[in-house]
């Protein structure tokens, strides 16, 4: 057991899985000699050599397209998009091939690969380095989308993603990379893909979030609990697609109230899908409208204005209180 940040935890997952399974390899821009621009893959080249830790030319479509080929040949590529904002250059390969190969061949061929990418704001970076666009991937049938929120679940979910038979988009909240540490067990630990996690049980309101937004959500929850003695149930989505709507609906049937916190723009966001699922499965138990606290439908501002465009704890507190007070 060691106290690791998310960078170290992801590095540990890669190292352990590569130790264990000789078919796992890592490829991407600057992942080998440099150890990744965020140092996620540091030390892997020294341990596993250049055949398994591959610095590629600068081409996202090439990285994913060749990863698909490797996966079809029985390897398990874990490829990296340097930033999610550049990943759209591989969207053609992803939609046309990674997500479809299984259905196309009635299950004969699968594409077990992982696409890691840092996403999200709050790091004072240039354009295209701050967006949260998980639904672009979650919307595609055949795609699995996993978004860890902390070191421990990042480590466990990445191992599960590598072992998964399908393409997994593994979106890493870069704002959380070095923001905090958690105890991460040395021995192998996995978590199921396709399951939400109830991180705190409660009876008055269900608070749902994922990725970097879990931190303001948790902070706001603690504040509201202290301020007015409310009991909040908190759910970390963890897998965006396929969505574990049963766990969320079950919670809402119990609490009758729900607030969803999302960094991404509002329209057609994951919170809209979650709301729809609650309507399908728990409508008659609702005592207040489901509240979505989200980013806005604007092009993500450069970092000078970024702060006000990302939901923060104060906004979440307000949203929770409005929902609790709704008669």
């Amino acid at each position: 057991m060691a106290k690791l940040n998310m960078v170290q935890a992801i590095n540990l997952a890669l190292r352990q899985e590569m130790d264990k399974d000789a078919t796992v390899l890592v490829l991407g821009q600057d992942v080998a000699v440099d150890g990744g621009v965020f140092r996620l893959t540091e030390g892997l080249l020294e341990r596993f050599g250049p055949l398994r830790v591959v610095d590629t030319p600068l081409a996202e479509s090439g990285i994913l397209g060749s990863s698909i080929g490797m996966a079809l040949a029985g390897l398990k590529p874990v490829c990296e998009m340097q930033f999610s904002g550049f990943s759209y250059l591989m969207m053609g390969q992803f939609e046309a091939h990674a997500t479809r190969m299984r259905a196309r061949t009635q299950g004969q061929l699968g594409v077990p690969l992982v696409i890691r990418m840092p996403y999200g704001g709050g790091v004072r970076a240039l354009e295209h380095h701050s967006e949260s666009r998980e639904v672009l991937y979650a919307h595609l049938p055949g795609a699995k989308v996993v978004i860890p929120s902390g070191p421990r679940n990042a480590r466990a979910l990445l191992i599960a993603a590598i072992r998964d038979p399908d393409p997994v988009v593994f979106m890493e909240p870069k704002h959380s990379y070095r923001a905090f540490r958690e105890e991460v067990p040395d021995e192998e630990e996995t978590m199921p893909i396709g399951k939400c996690q109830v991180v705190q049980e409660g009876s008055d309101l269900t608070l749902v979030s994922w990725g970097a937004m879990m931190r303001p959500a948790l902070k706001a929850a603690a504040e509201v609990e202290q301020k007015r003695g409310a009991s909040l149930e908190i759910i970390d989505v963890l897998t965006m697609a396929p969505l574990d709507s049963d766990t969320i609906a079950e919670s809402v049937r119990k609490t009758g109230r729900c607030v969803i916190v999302q960094e991404a723009p509002r329209s057609y966001g994951a919170s809209s899908e979650i709301t729809a699922q609650i309507n399908d499965k728990a409508l008659m138990h609702l005592e207040a409208p489901v509240k979505r606290l989200t980013g806005y439908d604007v092009v993500t501002p450069y970092f000078g204005r970024e702060k006000n465009y990302i939901p923060d704890a104060a906004r979440v507190v307000h949203g929770i209180e409005e929902t609790l007070d709704f008669q």
Binding site: Q29, D55, P57, L58
Partner: peptide
């Protein structure tokens, strides 16, 4: 250079 990738490895 392209970040850490030398010209010889780019093409």
């Amino acid at each position: 250079w392209a970040i850490s990738i030398p010209r010889a490895e780019q093409t």
